[in-house]
């Protein structure tokens, strides 16, 4: 059964877009309503999606059909998270937390350093043209800015650090420009939705 038709969906989109835009004038209850609805909707959506897309197939395939009944133990350990709502049993929630943290730390320590080491190595070994050379030079200048263990009295270190500061400022400007462009794109997306999909004012 379809609860929300495409037309209703579009109009809900229009109403909530306007509610969100109303914040540009000033804080108001309509904006708050839209904000809270979005958060609640995402939480509900994620719960339902994870159940149908992962939990249900896992139980059906692995436990009921596959006979891997030991997985029930993992479910029980996972459910211990909810004991944190009970003052006397809340200590039990430390078990799943410690397993998750231990797994995460161990796995990250094993895998995470590699990409950064590869990146550092390849930054220095792939100097093929002027741009590559400038990349390495700017990298060294920026690193020099953050060296505080040696004196900035020598000209090399001092000018390297000053150059590094300028390079960072230019980079931040570039990042800001990208951010502005990205934000305009989001706004344009909403305008196009209102003008094209909702009110059919443009093709």
């Amino acid at each position: 059964m379809t609860v929300i038709t495409p037309t209703m969906s579009t109009w809900l989109g229009v109403i909530f877009t306007l509610f969100a835009f109303s914040f540009l004038y000033k804080e108001n209850p309509f904006y708050r309503f839209a904000e809270h609805t979005l958060v609640a909707m995402q939480a509900a959506y994620t719960a339902v999606l994870e159940y149908y897309n992962y939990v249900k197939p896992a139980v059906q395939q692995d436990i009921l059909k596959g006979g891997r009944t030991w997985l029930i133990l993992a479910i029980v350990v996972g459910l211990l998270y909810y004991t944190m709502f009970h003052p006397k049993l809340s200590w039990l929630s430390r078990f799943p937390v410690s397993i998750a943290v231990g797994y995460g730390v161990g796995y990250n320590l094993a895998y995470t350093p590699r990409p950064f080491l590869v990146q550092i190595r390849d930054s220095f070994t792939q100097i093929k043209d002027v741009n590559s050379f400038l990349f390495v030079l700017f990298l060294l200048c920026t690193l020099t800015y953050f060296i505080f263990t040696i004196s900035h009295g020598s000209k090399v270190v001092r000018y390297g650090a000053i150059s590094g500061r300028w390079i960072m400022m230019i980079t931040f400007g570039y990042m800001f420009g990208n951010t502005v462009q990205g934000r305009f794109s989001l706004l344009l997306g909403r305008f196009l939705f209102l003008l094209k999909d909702a009110f059919h004012l443009v093709k």
Binding site: V118, D122, S123, Q126, T171, N178, G182
Partner: peptide
């Protein structure tokens, strides 16, 4: 990628960890 993410991706493109970056709406 969205534009906000592009500048942070360029070192990965330089090192070859990314084969290509498509910058936002542009």
């Amino acid at each position: 990628s969205v534009m906000v993410e592009v500048s942070g991706s360029l070192p990965y493109l330089k090192s070859g960890q990314l084969k290509g970056v498509l910058p936002g709406m542009r």
